[in-house]
Design a protein around this nucleic acid. Sequence first.
DNA 1: AGCGCACTACGTACGGTGTACGGAACTAGG
DNA 2: CCTAGTTCCGTACACCGTACGTAGTGCGCT
Lengths: 237, 237
Amino acid sequence: MAGRAAEPEVIWTRPERTGRGPKPAYTRADIAAAAVRVADAEGLDAVSMRRVAAELGCGTMSLYNYVPRKEDLYELMVDAAGAEHELWEPSGDWRADMLRVAHQTRDLMHRHPWLPRLMSPVYGFSPHALRFLEHCLACLDPLPVSYGTKMELIAMLNGVVTTYVANELATAERTRSLPWSEEQEHAARAAYLRERIGSGEYPRMAAAFAENSGPIDLEAVFERALHRVLDGFEPRA
Amino acid sequence: MAGRAAEPEVIWTRPERTGRGPKPAYTRADIAAAAVRVADAEGLDAVSMRRVAAELGCGTMSLYNYVPRKEDLYELMVDAAGAEHELWEPSGDWRADMLRVAHQTRDLMHRHPWLPRLMSPVYGFSPHALRFLEHCLACLDPLPVSYGTKMELIAMLNGVVTTYVANELATAERTRSLPWSEEQEHAARAAYLRERIGSGEYPRMAAAFAENSGPIDLEAVFERALHRVLDGFEPRA
DNA sequence: AGCGCACTACGTACGGTGTACGGAACTAGG
DNA sequence: CCTAGTTCCGTACACCGTACGTAGTGCGCT
């Protein structure tokens, strides 16, 4: 009776509130918003049950009335971020629409740099994720391929965007907890790399760096990557 | 003097041992191997400084003589795993070689399921990562594009493989710490998904699931993804 | 109407984490 | 030889997720 059996539980099936007892002081959305606020301002590692509870102004253990495990808090955060996805009436040009989707996802991840790290297929079915998925499928209506293929397209595009942004943000998020700056870290790694490459052990890498030693246009790299992904799904190629 | 200034430090530039004092009891490789052993057997979350020290049979704080921060231990682990990459004489067929690379990476990640989670561009320049990169570039010698483009190809292929395997392993690694099994978790999520889709809010997702309700051939999905990536870099398309 | 119970709230406590600090043992360089 | 720079590691601290128990609250049922 009291000791509930260990049964799998998806947070979204758990009703937000039940009839009996005092009214909950917060909604799930309140909690997600607080966690997102903390993560945005202080980084994902600052998101602890205590910190989020403090942000809300309640006791730590009160959170466990809303969220059975910390992992579910993460799931709420991802869903809350997904709510910021702006949806539109599909234009009829699936390529243009998917490019727009990709750019919007990237912007979203720039606003919430912790998102790439939390991106997991496990969280892929939260309410807002479903809404987003349905929207992508709507944008792909003009594309004459099976739904299975469309799913593969969406997964691949999202994957590439996530990987790309994660790479963009990696040192930034990393150096947050380090006693030196991002620039210093970058410089140290670059110096090490130059030294290694100068050793002659890696002739092709040396050639690659010689080819273009200037700064890379990351924006252009991103754009090329998107187009290449979409090209792979163009029919009758 | 004693209080060293906070300067950026790449673990690979730090000499493995210095002249003065007693001989270190372990090599960096010993430590990496111990950490990998723990991660393979008990999951990445079991890799704590105490646990790794116990695995080695030394005091916890002794580890800090070899590794300044836990994060550097992760870097050692990734490099140690990278050492398992088997390199070969390029065949002259860059497509075949890159497919082989991709499959090998996937196998590697299956052997070390914690690898996708640690994959970070920051770790991309460890000794074995450089060796691997040079090998990929060698395989791409027959491809008549710039080194910049080759780098983009390698990054994209690795990214797609990593994302794909991470998805494959997500629930498995996740349920390790949960009081129920992977199958139960999967069933609960599937039930929730069916319920949501049955609501009629997501007509296209419903159609997608109706189209093919049987189990998906993940192997084929992976293969298609690889070919699509490589297609995007085929010259004169 | 009023009782009971399911629920919220949350203080305390436990076992874990990364790692700063300091002291003891050891060995190569001047 | 001596001393300075190491390695080794026990102790300690702040913080983490969360199990458990208690107190108070208000809905639903009788």
